[in-house]
Amino acid sequence: MAQNVPSKEHFQQAYDGSAPWDIGKPQPVFVEAAEQITGRLLDVGCGTGENSLFFAERGHPTTGIDFLEHPIAQAKRKAAARGLPAAFRVMDALRLDQLGDVFDSAIDCGLFHVFSDEDRAHYVNALARVVQPGGRLFLICFSDLEPPGDGPRRISQAEIHAAFADDWQVESIRQARFETRRDPHQSPFSEGGPLAWFCVIRRSAG
């Protein structure tokens, strides 16, 4: 399967304009799963922070990280304006050990599918260092049911199971969609939003 790995500049340019995934509210799949998400929360690849802020408002001690300064600055401004105590840091998701902290839950909204095969393995290992045993990762990624074309890699269920074969247990995978900005000139994806997999993955207890 083609890797189609976007560059850092791609994301910088997206945030300089109107990133199609930056919809000004949390992704619906995380709102739907909110009751399953417990304790201290890490939002990996948080962008401008809408998912983080949703969970902070629900009372979760929340940390969001992203490798770009611009969306993190926006997330901090939003948190201050809304009076929410979420923390935001500029950080490479492959260096999560530098957080010096562990979390009960983690969310990944469209980060997993941007990595090369090599970096995907590093990413999963990095997550295992910061999600406590028994904690869970809630992940949405592009599905291989989405027709080939622009955008990130399409991911199969088999690839998800393979990536999380060690130190994790895939509890569930279901079909979902990303909500994107409703701009017909900007979205080359399926009508109704790109097809996705929503996964619940538990960190092994020992």
Rank of each mutant, 00 (worst) to 15 (best):
I173P: 04
T38I: 14
S204T: 07
Q98C: 04
P184Y: 10
R136L: 01
F198K: 05
H70D: 14
H113P: 02
P28F: 13
Q12M: 11
D104N: 14
A121H: 14
E57T: 05
P6F: 12
D108V: 09
I201L: 09
H161I: 13
D43S: 09
F198Q: 09
F103W: 14
E69L: 09
D22I: 05
S143T: 05
Q98V: 00
R82P: 00
Q3I: 06
A14R: 15
M1R: 14
F189D: 02
A121V: 15
F88P: 01
P26A: 15
W21S: 03
H161Q: 13
E9T: 13
I140N: 12
F189S: 03
T38R: 15
L145K: 15
A158M: 10
C141M: 07
F142M: 10
M1W: 10
D166H: 13
V44F: 13
I107G: 08
R89M: 09
G135Y: 06
A34I: 02
S52R: 02
F178D: 03
H185E: 15
A33R: 01
D167K: 09
Q98W: 11
P71I: 02
E171P: 08
L94H: 07
Q74T: 14
H185W: 06
F30E: 02
L84R: 10
W197A: 08
